[in-house]
Simulated scan of single mutants.
Amino acid sequence: MLAALLYGKEDLRLEQVADPTPAAGEVVIRVKAATTCGTDLKVWRRGGHAKMLKPPTPFGHEAAGEIVALGAGVKDWHLGDREAFQIGTRVVANNSAPCMTCFFCQKHEYSLCQNLLFNNGTFAEYLKIPAAIVQHNLLPIPADLPYNLASMTEPLACVLHGAARSHVKPGDRVVILGDGAIGLMFVAALSSGKGDWTSTPHPALPHPFTEVFLFGGNDSRLQIGEKLGAAKTFNYKQVEDVPALVKDLTDGWGADVVIEATGVPSVWEMAIACARPGATVNLFGGCPRDTTITVNTDQLHYSELTLKGVFHNTPEYVRAALRLLASQAVPFELLLSGEQPLSNLAQVFEEMRDRKVIKVAILPD
């Protein structure tokens, strides 16, 4: 089969590799759509990822498709809230699964799992799904949900996890820094007020009267942010002092919640500067390895700021993300800049680097 492999910084190659075969507990899916992601872009530009992969490696981590092969035992598993998988079942696979037994899993802190298993290689004709993901994070897709939208389950699950950890309350004014796919998903999640994301009520669920201010550097993306529910959008290139503007927007206080969605250390510092006393600052965008930021200790202490790093997702939010996508109550299709064949993958990443596209659905040739 044809598959994309990452060899280093901006070194992405399409190669013929052996078709995967499933071992016990595994399945193989035929990829119907694999969406590109800002994380993929950062990995492509940096040549690796501290947690998920080291080159040379199969590349891509968002995909939906149909099952074409089942490993031994899969039909006999009890899958909890899911029906047994069969050949032809339309599915979406999260790119990870927790072990469910380590110190953190026992505390239900699944994104911190010591043995978190990652699976890459969605930019290919076929994708093998490891047994742990089959058990915990492989979900059937509703018949009326297109593969392109279903493929966005993983990043949306990360966003819902991050939004819940931000503890947004009724009437809060939220600043989001970054107009990439993740920042725009945060806008949609926090502005929509579409109700319960998870199977149980959660005090951090958003409310339709949450006021979201989006800052980014691309006018067309900011327009999408408005369509997704942002109360106001601002091109930071035209703003002399972002924290000062945020204070003007919030009666001189600063934002109740700030979400950083760029992965740039200087923007982490800007996020802290935008916060009011008592605010929560969600430092969501992953920065390059070994980078640091400076924090004013007086502000942190006397303003009682909560600075929070949030990483990845959990099985609860994977299910919640698929439900939200399946409801089609939020126009997440606005984030898709079209479809491209696998053979055009390198060009797509160049266009992402140049901010010409947001997310692209890659279809095997």
Rank of each mutant, 00 (worst) to 15 (best):
D81N: 15
V91F: 14
T89R: 07
L70K: 05
C99W: 00
P98R: 02
N95D: 10
H78G: 08
E66V: 09
P98F: 02
N94G: 12
H78K: 09
W77F: 15
Q86I: 07
V91M: 09
M100C: 09
M100F: 05
L79F: 15
N95T: 09
G73M: 00
G80L: 04
R82Q: 15
V92A: 06
A72R: 04
T89L: 05
V68H: 11
A69G: 09
I67E: 06
S96V: 01
A93E: 04
P98V: 03
K75Q: 10
A84F: 11
C99L: 05
F103T: 00
V91N: 12
F103R: 00
I87D: 07
C102I: 01
M100D: 06
L70M: 10
C99R: 03
E83N: 12
I87N: 10
R82S: 12
G80M: 06
V74N: 02
A93Q: 03
H78S: 14
D81T: 09
G73C: 01
C102V: 02
F85C: 09
P98K: 01
V91A: 11
G73A: 08
G80H: 10
A84E: 14
L70W: 10
N94I: 12
M100E: 07
W77Y: 15
F104Q: 01
V91I: 12
W77R: 00
A84S: 12
D76Y: 00
F104K: 00
M100P: 03
Q86N: 08
V74A: 00
A84G: 10
E83G: 14
A93W: 05
A84L: 14
V92F: 12
D76W: 05
E66C: 03
G88C: 11
R90E: 10
Q86E: 14
L79S: 14
V74W: 01
G88D: 09
F104R: 01
G71T: 10
F85L: 07
I67P: 02
C99Y: 04
C99F: 04
A72F: 11
A93G: 07
I67D: 07
G71D: 13
C102K: 00
F85P: 05
A69H: 07
C99Q: 03
I87Q: 02
A84Y: 14
G88I: 09
R90Y: 15
A97T: 04
